[in-house]
Design a protein around this nucleic acid. Sequence first.
DNA 1: CTAACGTTTGTCCAATCGGTCAAAAATTGC
DNA 2: GCAATTTTTGACCGATTGGACAAACGTTAG
Lengths: 208, 208
Amino acid sequence: MDAAAKPRTTRIQVQKRELILDAALDVFSTNGFRGSTIDQIADAAGMSKPNLLYYFKSKEDIHTTLIERLLETWLAPLHEIDDIGDPMTELRAYIRRKLEMARDYPRESRLFANEILQGAPRIMPLLEDQLKSLVDEKAHIIKGWMRDGKIAQTDPRHLIFAIWATTQHYADFDVQVRAVLGPDRGGDGRFDDAARFLEQLFLEGLRP
Amino acid sequence: MDAAAKPRTTRIQVQKRELILDAALDVFSTNGFRGSTIDQIADAAGMSKPNLLYYFKSKEDIHTTLIERLLETWLAPLHEIDDIGDPMTELRAYIRRKLEMARDYPRESRLFANEILQGAPRIMPLLEDQLKSLVDEKAHIIKGWMRDGKIAQTDPRHLIFAIWATTQHYADFDVQVRAVLGPDRGGDGRFDDAARFLEQLFLEGLRP
DNA sequence: CTAACGTTTGTCCAATCGGTCAAAAATTGC
DNA sequence: GCAATTTTTGACCGATTGGACAAACGTTAG
C-alpha cells in the first residue's frame, strides 16, 4: 500500500552521519575538495571507507551536504540586520557577529573560501539566487540609512563586501595573521585587537 | 678545471620554462596544488608530460618556482611605502596599487590565497621571516604617522590586514562579487566602484 | 655527411584514488 | 532464544596520478 520507500532513520544513523560531517569539515577545509580523500575523512571519523560510503553515497554527497548546511548558518548574521534599530548600532553588531564567526567557526569559513576560490562550481546557483537577493534586500536597507543621513553615502554592496573580507580574513588567512603578528600578539588577543580596529575603521569611516 | 656543472641555459629553455610557468599559474590558481595535474599543465602549455618534466623535475618544483617568484612582485606595493610623502597620499596610493594588482593579477592572488588557506605548508618560513619583518618595518612608519597626528590612532598591523583583505577580496572572491552585483554592475565597472568605496572608507576612517 | 648535443614523445610503472560487493558482525524485534 | 535487519569490513576493481626511461627527433658545428 505504501509504494514510497520508508524513511528509515535510526538514531545511530543520525549520529554517524554527524560524526562523518564533522570529520569531513576538518579535512575539506584544510585540503579543498580535490585535495581531500575519502580515506582521510574515514580515518578522521574513526571508521573504514566502505562504512563511510554506507552513510554517504559519494565524496561529493558529503561535500554538498556540508555546503548546504553551512550556507544557512553562514548568512545568519546578515539576515539579522533590520531597519528598526539604530544604523550605527546595527552595523557594529553585524561586524562583531561576523568576526565572532570567523573566530568560532574557522573551518566553515575556509570551506566556503575554498569553494569560492575554485570558481564556486557547486554553489554558483545559490550565489546568484539566494545570496544575491539577500544582499539586494540588505543593501536597500543600508541605502535607506544613507538617504536619511544616518551614515555616510557610499556603495552599500561594497560596504558589505568590505565587512565580509575583513572579518573572514582572520579565519581564512589565519596562519599568515599569526605569522606576521608573532608569538606576542598572535595569541588569543588578536581577535580583540581586530574587533577594536574594525569598529573604529567602519564606524569612523561611515560617520555621516 | 671547472669542477662545477656548466650553467646551461639555452634561449629555448628560458622560453619554454616561462611558457610552463604561465600555464601552471592558470591551472594551480583555479584548482589548487593537489587539485592540479601535470597533464593539465602540460596540455595548457601545449606539450607532452615528459617534455614538461624535462624542464621542471617535479610538480612541486613548478609550484615552488611560481610561489617564490610571486612573492617578490606581490609585496612590491608594500615595499614602496615610505615616510617621506604625505601619509594620507601614501595610504591612498597603496590601496590603489593593491586593488590594481587584484584586477590585473587575479591568478597570482588566488595562488597565494590557496597556499595560505591550506596552512602555507610550503612558504611558512617566508611568512615568518621576510613578510613579518617587512610588515614590522612598515607598521613602524605608520605608527610614526599616528604619533605625529597625521592619521588616527589605531593598530597599524590590523590596518595592513584590512587593506590586504578588502583589495584581494576582488580577486579571490571574484565569482561571488560578480554573482552578487549581477550583470549590471558586475562588469568592468566594479573595480572603479570598489576603488571609490575603499578610498572613502579608509581615508575617512583614518582621519585624525 | 656525421658526430654531438639538445629536445620531444610513446610507453610503462607503482601508488593512490573513488567506489563496489559479498560476507561477517552487531543489533533489533519478537 | 532466533530470525530479520542494520552496521561494518576485507578484498577487490578500473581509472587516474606523478614520474622514469629509452628511443626518436631536431639542430648545429665541423
